[in-house]
């Protein structure tokens, strides 16, 4: 990847992370950990790979995104605002009565949100259906399915994966956010996930594992998936829950964070200031 392009993606990642933090602090609470772990992924998708028209969210030629771990809605909203689907002011309405940005994504409310999710597991089957329909209609489009590692506890995920592999839906790029934590703690302590990459391979997926905070590696993995034409494809992202902000990475319970204590507020404000500085400096170079 050219240096300039990478810089642009890193700038977008910083902006997304910045807006996630601003939203959650303004709201007073929110699903922080799982939102931050997919920031770089969303940056690579919306900054490089995804085909979309922000002025025409329902464009028939667009690639589609299903974030099955719906509680990461804030990261999606921050991304969509940054690439022009709607104004950033709207981000401050998160979870307010009457908002178009509910905690869990709603395709009937938010421009750019392709599928409603929130009940873990369900997005996987819908993405499978979208991919199958695209193939049957001879449409050259992709659907990107983002799944949580905790979410993989749901049997429905494996029903969907079996389906995707059976139909060789290589236009459905399955991306697993392996941040190694779920709601009640580490995945290994809640219910042993074993080796996710090996499980995907056993299910018939061509699978790549990359660092989830590395835009270039993510981008390369997506390119590689697009070269595969005879099987289902998946990417296991090695991420950190709360990624990119050390304080929140280390916070024991960082699934849903409340900003009702000074420590959390200070840490968030410090992160916001740092990110703002980074954005300002990068803008000079991009």
């Amino acid at each position: 990847m050219e240096k300039h392009e990478l810089m642009k993606l890193k700038l977008l990642s910083a902006n997304i992370r910045l807006d996630v933090m601003k939203m959650l602090v303004h709201c007073g609470y929110g699903h922080l950990g799982g939102s931050l772990s997919i920031v770089e992924l969303l940056s690579v998708l919306y900054g490089k790979h995804l085909r979309y028209d922000a002025t025409n969210p329902n464009d028939d030629n667009r690639d589609m995104v299903v974030i099955s771990k719906g509680h990461s809605g804030p990261a999606w909203y921050a991304t969509l605002a940054n690439v022009g689907f709607f104004d950033k002011e709207m981000l401050m309405t998160l979870n307010e009565g009457g908002t178009n940005l509910p905690s869990h994504p709603d395709r009937t409310k938010t421009p750019g949100v392709d599928m409603t999710t929130g009940s873990l597991g369900q997005g996987t089957s819908v993405a499978a259906g979208i991919a199958l329909a695209m193939k049957r209609l001879n449409q050259n489009r992709y659907v990107y399915l983002i799944v949580g590692d905790g979410e993989l506890n749901e049997g429905q995920c494996w029903e969907a994966f079996q389906f995707i592999a059976n139909y060789k839906l290589n236009n459905c790029i399955v991306i697993i956010d392996e941040n190694k934590r779920q709601l009640d703690g580490y995945t290994i302590d809640v219910i042993n996930p074993f080796d996710i990459k090996k499980k995907m391979e056993a299910f018939g997926f061509y699978t790549i594992k990359v660092k989830g905070d590395d835009e270039e590696a993510i981008s390369k993995a997506i390119d590689e998936c697009k070269q595969v034409n005879n099987s289902a494809v998946s990417i296991v992202l090695d991420t950190i829950k709360g990624q990119g902000i050390t304080y929140f990475e280390n916070l024991i319970d960082n699934h849903s964070v409340k900003f009702n204590n000074q420590e959390n507020i200070d840490a968030a404000n410090e992160a916001i200031a740092k990110l703002e500085k980074f954005v300002k400096e990068s803008l000079k170079n991009v």
Binding site: Y29, G70, N95, P102, S103, H104, D106, T116, T117, G118, S119
Partner: peptide, 17 residues
């Protein structure tokens, strides 16, 4: 079974919940 947060008590989890 304890099914928690029925009806409007799902509050900030929203319509999906």
């Amino acid at each position: 079974i304890y099914g928690s947060d029925p009806g409007y008590t799902s509050a900030h989890n929203g319509g999906t919940h």
